[in-house]
Design a binder for these strands. Structure first.
Lengths: 341, 341
DNA sequence: TTCGCGATTGCATCCGAATGCAAACGCCCA
DNA sequence: TGGGCGTTTGCATTCGGATGCAATCGCGAA
């Protein structure tokens, strides 16, 4: 409609300065909160800026201020049903603090090195990772003075800031309730062997069972629906006398297990109790009404962003851990006594 | 372990140049594919670079080359169950082409303007949007010469590149199969009124029913599980003579509807056939075995990225649309005749 | 040994905004 | 009317890498 070839409209602070009859520094100062600019001049400049459609070039700003406003968010498997919610919340909260999400969705854990190389290049201000980082990778991050917050990951012994949902408390609660209700023959479906979340949950459940003098059967899984089905089959095959309760390391596998049980004609929770962990959306659907522990995603993401922001502002802050208690969702996939107290 | 205070280790091309006894330009050229550098010198420089842990500063590169390597991905509701897969695939494919994902997860459609302001600031190379963009917003994007690809969104009349799954073909197929199997009394649950995907699907289904001389009952929904339940209730309340088939604008609502039907003692598909759209993971679970149309996410995301990459390389390319046929998943939530041919 | 030509290399400059510093300004009071 | 002081303002420089251009190098041919 207008010019034939819009000349790659890129308005710079110089353009605004010229149009407003001031220096480039004046324009720059207009966009800096506490800067010293005469109110009248500021108004005039801002008017011109608006008219020309000027906005400070974040790239140029980053170069000189050494603050990119970018936060690398590294997530291992977005298809997990649990992470999308986390990602959405993280995005929202980082946004609220003026930071952008540079997303890295891992295909395989081995991609981490490649991802980190990009992270270095983009001079991100910090990293939030829901992925497994090796000690060498943690060291590389620390060496560059990059603030890091791990989400639901532990790094044994390494001093790293992290936000986690309390697996031990959660599994302990589940096990105690199940045992109290009379379950004795337990099966556990774990997640991938290299998942710290899975290891933690399985260890916690196993330890608690031991306290009750019980030893569970184990089946390996991959955190997905199919693993839940396969896991149940495997456990039933192992269990001579049958199974009273199944503890899955996450909801998705618990759901898979419930379906496998039903397919075999087992009623849940009539013949078998099933519990999960996470509290994802489908867990609450009628078809499953899963007994599980819901992670407080809102509070956890808020904490992660807060921890990160603090450390970006003050890099010398020590790493801290925030441990959140999950919320017990009774559901109806496990046979429990009415009230524990 | 090493120095007390690592002096904010930021290695620049000058550092590498000094250490290798060459000029900064030489270092720069080493990292540019076709550049002219003597092999021996290149090796030496790369060795020094590796030793110092040098990587070109993407921010500085962007400033001078006017290519940030960033692609803004704007997604309206990540919690949709369908988008996480899309996002993961987009991320993977952009990555493969050397581009990074700057993620914008919308809270509300009204956030788009704020998002775009950030998009301008970061000088992204292009935009992939799975969100509703207003004509004024499309114009602003076009004015800046920013390549844009819409994902599963149409922009009536506007010349914008887009990738879509063929709603008309999909719904037509579903309706034809349902009608052929004897269904006559139809109900449709739509998505949000401002969703072009929903409008398209509902319009296509309605039009096809009209061709068969049928008029469906309608219930509004929000693309979520609860809407599916509510939608079914609403439709049953409207339908005096009962309902033969329910067409939901997406899988999530179809699942909600199935659960609501069962809760009322209706068998699916015995008493009521239910079909959805998308082909999300849970649709395939035993509990639902949803009859639906699966979007070819792999091919669609590949096309989106390809369209975008082409237009970044050659901005003058005309906008094009890629329409993909969905795959019919028979499932078992609808009573159908064995074979249509 | 010298010339010629293509391959290397370095110099200088540029991208766009932020900021220390000093000059210029305005205002109040004596 | 002049001096003093706190604001505004502009100048010049900086961030880190890319690149046009001219100088230099290397090597084979005469």
């Amino acid at each position: 409609m207008a010019a034939d070839r819009p000349p790659r409209t890129t308005v710079t602070s110089y353009d605004v300065a010229r149009a407003a009859g001031v220096s480039q520094s004046a324009v720059s100062r207009c966009f800096k909160p506490g800067a010293s600019v005469a109110p009248a001049k500021r108004d005039r400049i801002m008017a011109v800026a608006r008219e020309l459609g000027y906005a400070p070039n974040a790239i140029a700003q980053s170069l000189i201020t050494k603050r990119s406003g970018l936060v690398a968010v590294i997530i291992s498997n977005l298809t997990n049903l649990y992470y999308p919610e986390v990602l959405a919340e993280l995005s929202r909260r980082l946004d609220a603090r003026g930071m952008r999400v540079l997303l890295f969705a891992l295909q395989a854990e081995s991609d981490v090195d490649a991802v980190l190389a990009e992270v270095w290049r983009y001079r991100v201000d910090g990293i939030i990772a829901a992925a497994r980082l090796l000690p060498a990778q943690l060291a590389a991050i620390a060496e560059r003075g990059l603030p890091l917050v791990l989400y639901n990951r532990l790094s044994e012994g390494e001093p790293v800031a992290s936000v986690c949902c309390d697996s031990v408390a959660g599994e302990t609660l589940l096990i105690d309730r199940l045992v109290a209700a009379g379950h004795r023959r337990f099966g556990i479906i774990s997640g991938p062997a290299d998942s710290s979340v899975s290891n933690e949950r399985v260890a916690a459940a196993t330890a608690r069972l031991a306290l009750h003098g019980l030893v569970p059967l184990l089946a390996p899984g991959q955190f997905d629906h199919a693993s839940g089905r396969a896991g149940l089959e495997s456990l039933l095959a192992q269990a001579d006398g049958g199974l009273d309760a199944l503890v899955a390391a996450n909801d998705l596998m618990a759901i898979g297990a419930i379906e496998a049980a039903r397919a075999r004609g087992l009623a849940v929770p009539g013949d078998l109790s099933v519990v999960g962990f996470d509290g994802v959306g489908p867990a609450g659907w009628d078809s499953f009404r899963l007994t599980t522990i819901r992670q407080p995603v809102q509070r956890m993401t808020e904490a992660a962003v807060a921890l990160l922001a603090e450390r970006i502002a003050q890099p010398e802050l020590p790493p801290e851990r925030r441990l959140f208690a999950g919320e017990f969702l009774p559901g109806a996939s496990a046979r429990l006594d009415p009230c524990p107290e």
